[in-house]
Write a protein that binds this DNA or RNA. Structure first.
Length: 157
DNA sequence: GCCAACGTTGGC
DNA sequence: GCCAACGTTGGC
């Protein structure tokens, strides 16, 4: 019985819209999530499975908030940008024989007509346990199904 | 642009 | 293994 097949996990991934926005993903359909250089965030990506849902969060935006939805379309594999000396994500401590950093591919799902702002999330009692709210600069974080559903509902979906 | 919070590095 | 110094994130 492959019961794990029936489980779906939920995540929140941060991106600065000036660097890569949900609109960029809408245009490109899929993208690789390179450049994560934090172990906790990396470990979360390693746990991702194809089909998992992703809240696409715009950080350093005016205002910051969840701007849309994505899904995991390819599970963790080595982040080759770490091997490229010309990349801003280069890391001399990561090698092809022993890659330190991983990335996943995500696919476009939806742009929220009205993003769900961080201020609104913080003002919602049902979302007070979100990792996002309890500080943490963690750029790839787990979200519960109820948190995910609530944010979709707040976005009018 | 400021700065608080947090993660990483490296000397000891 | 501690912890000070430093760098980065990201809201405001």
């Amino acid at each position: 019985m492959r019961t794990e097949f029936f489980y779906m996990n939920y995540w929140l991934m941060k991106s600065e819209p000036d660097v890569y926005s949900i609109q960029d993903l809408q245009r490109e359909k899929t993208t690789c999530w390179e450049g994560v250089r934090n172990y906790q965030a990396r470990n979360n990506m390693i746990k991702m499975r194809v089909g998992d849902r992703v809240l696409f969060y715009h950080s350093n935006a005016k205002p910051p908030g969840v701007a849309g939805l994505a899904t995991v379309v390819k599970e963790a594999y080595p982040d080759h940008f770490a091997f490229n000396e010309d990349s801003k994500y280069f890391d001399a401590k990561s090698s092809k024989d022993n890659p330190r950093w991983q990335m996943v591919d995500v696919g476009f799902e939806a742009v929220f007509p009205h993003p769900v702002g961080l201020n609104t999330i913080k003002a919602t009692a049902a979302l007070k346990s979100m990792v996002l709210v309890n500080s943490s600069r963690l750029s790839v974080q787990p979200v519960t199904k109820s948190e995910y559903d609530r944010i979709c509902k707040m976005a009018g979906r």
